[in-house]
Design a protein around this nucleic acid. Structure first.
Length: 489
RNA sequence: GGCCCCAUGGUCAAGCGGCUAAGACGGCGCCCUCUCAAGGCGCAAUCACGAGUUCGAUUCUCGUUGGGGUCACCA
């Protein structure tokens, strides 16, 4: 049978990387076996409606490279794919359950439910007291007739225990008394997430349910629903949570579910910070899953390779901490391996901002590629091109090169005229400097150091002396060299 | 608090009764080198604890501790 998985986000306008990783694993689970990946929008909570939020979902999936086979935007044989458009189908299912004695009408007011909670003993957590579970039929009819608002609740088993199998966690057993009579249809007639989820998954032919491990303990309730309808229970693949590390008020390191306080956790937040979509996906694929066989120890994967390598046996059970350092490294790997066109496409906005012309593109690509871990760093790396301030002359002093204020002054004095007359290409500049060094029996470093400092005005530059001069152009270089020379007295 | 799950270096993690306990990020050192990177080489760093089972436990069982999740007319 063809595998069908689904990604069922609710439109909140924000795509958490945890959700995105779930989507990724759902995609990979299906695609590894040649199955279908379905997108379904779960918008049964009208109170949480956010304008344009579904576009965020489409854009995320598209940018992330997770192409769905069926969904609200492209259709499919199991539509509609938006829950609010399926609204009419849920209640009849719930009523079918009521008729079968597997669910019941509950007329309890919100106030009564709140009182239940309020009256609970200190530290005690109480669920619904099943007040309406065994109401006499006459009373039910009466209330229905009178138009008393109601919800439909699932009749959960009171005793015994439920066991189910999960592909990652193995057999899970829960005492049935832990299962409460959850609401299936809300007072407004809308289904709850739990209920709609089961109905949708079944009617859409979802074979593998992939979701976070927070559903581990409520899964028996879902199963009870499948059983009540006589439907086949899907294969479950629960995923370990993604955690974040932070420091509490006392300065202690604490680990908790990844959230805003750990830094950017939204997909587009990360993208805006300069992380490449491919790198983000690559990184999160490895958070909680480890490749095996021919892919063992591999760190960099294209989406196609992930599809080939993915195997649910490699999914780990323990939660993992989101490591921004490693993400940064993965991102850098992608940059280093980029072809020129892609590199330029990403770098161009920054080049334009700095007023850099086409003539420098190739050289910049060469010197920037190994030096940036994110494209957003370009501005800072090249700041010296447009800024040249009266830098601290002590920059000319460099122990390793044996450069001092004196040697710098002498060498600049000698070399400025030479450079002024020479050609302005990489070889010419390099040769001029090294030949001068050789002629005076100086180490290259002793010559390169002051020239680079004088030209850039900063200690750290991407690329070396010749590259800095080239980027600056002859006029600007000579101007700076002369100015620095003058300042050296 | 009840219930469920988890537990290998700082982090991601391999391991599935016998290994000098992989690999990666990060850290540190060396090399290369005009700075910074990149690259190369190397080093430090892990089986939470306690009982069992076994000839032998990181690996199996139980307990302890620690961490996480969950207990809605939210999804």
């Amino acid at each position: 049978m063809k595998i069908r998985t689904r990604f069922a986000p609710s439109p909140t306008g924000f795509m958490h990387v945890g959700n995105l990783r779930t989507a990724l694993y759902e995609y990979l689970t299906a695609k590894h076996e040649g199955g279908d990946f379905i997108l379904r929008i779960e918008d049964t909570d009208q109170e949480r409606y956010v304008e344009g939020a579904t576009d965020v979902i489409y854009n995320t999936l598209k940018t992330a490279g997770l192409t769905h086979d069926e969904g609200p935007d492209i259709g499919g044989d199991f539509g509609p794919y938006v829950q609010s458009e399926r609204l009419s189908m849920y209640k009849p299912y719930a009523e079918e359950l009521v008729k079968a004695g597997k669910a019941y009408y509950c007329f309890c007011s919100k106030e009564r439910l709140e009182d239940l909670k309020k009256n609970a003993k200190e530290g005690e957590v109480v669920g619904y007291d099943r007040h309406c579970r065994d109401l006499p039929q006459s009373e039910i009819d009466e209330k229905l007739q009178a138009g008393v608002p109601y919800v439909i609740r699932q009749k959960s088993p009171l005793t015994g225990e439920s066991t189910y199998h999960d592909c990652v966690y193995g057999d899970i057993t829960i005492p049935n008394e832990e299962l409460d009579d959850q609401v299936l249809i809300k007072a407004d007639g809308f289904p709850t997430y739990n209920f709609a989820n089961v109905i949708d998954d079944h009617t859409m032919g979802i074979t593998h349910v992939v979701r976070g491990s927070e559903y581990l303990s409520s899964t028996p309730k879902y199963n009870a629903l499948y059983d009540a309808f006589g439907w086949e229970i899907p294969t479950y693949i629960h995923l370990p949570l993604i955690m974040g590390k932070s420091v509490d008020e006392e300065g202690k390191e604490v680990v908790s579910k990844l959230s805003k306080r750990h830094g950017s956790t939204g997909f587009f937040d990360l993208v805006n910070e300069g992380f490449l979509p491919e790198a983000i996906m690559n990184y999160i694929a490895l958070l909680g899953w480890c490749p095996a066989g021919e892919y063992e120890n591999r760190e960099i994967f294209t989406m196609d390779e992930l599809v080939k390598a993915f195997d649910i046996h490699g999914i780990s059970k323990s939660p993992s901490v989101f490591d921004y350092d490693k993400l940064e490294w993965v991102n850098a790997e992608y940059i280093k391996n980029m072809d020129s066109d892609t590199f330029l496409k990403n770098a161009k906005p920054y080049f334009d901002k700095l007023g850099i012309g086409e003539g420098s593109y190739a050289l910049l690509e060469e010197i920037l590629k190994p030096r940036i871990t994110r494209f957003t760093q370009i501005e800072e790396k090249l700041a010296f091109l447009n800024n040249y301030e009266a830098f601290d002359l002590s920059l000319f002093e460099h122990k390793k090169s044996k450069s001092t204020l004196e040697t710098s002054k002498a060498i600049l004095g000698d070399i400025i005229p030479v450079l002024a007359e020479g050609a302005w290409d990489r070889d010419a500049i390099t040769n001029a400097l090294t030949e001068y060094a050789a002629a005076h029996e100086y180490k290259n470093a002793l010559v390169m150091w002051p020239v680079r400092i004088a030209a850039a005005g900063v200690a750290v530059t991407p690329g070396g002396c010749a590259e800095v001069l080239l980027l600056l152009g002859k006029d600007e270089s000579m101007r700076r060299l002369n100015e620095a020379f003058k300042r050296l007295g």
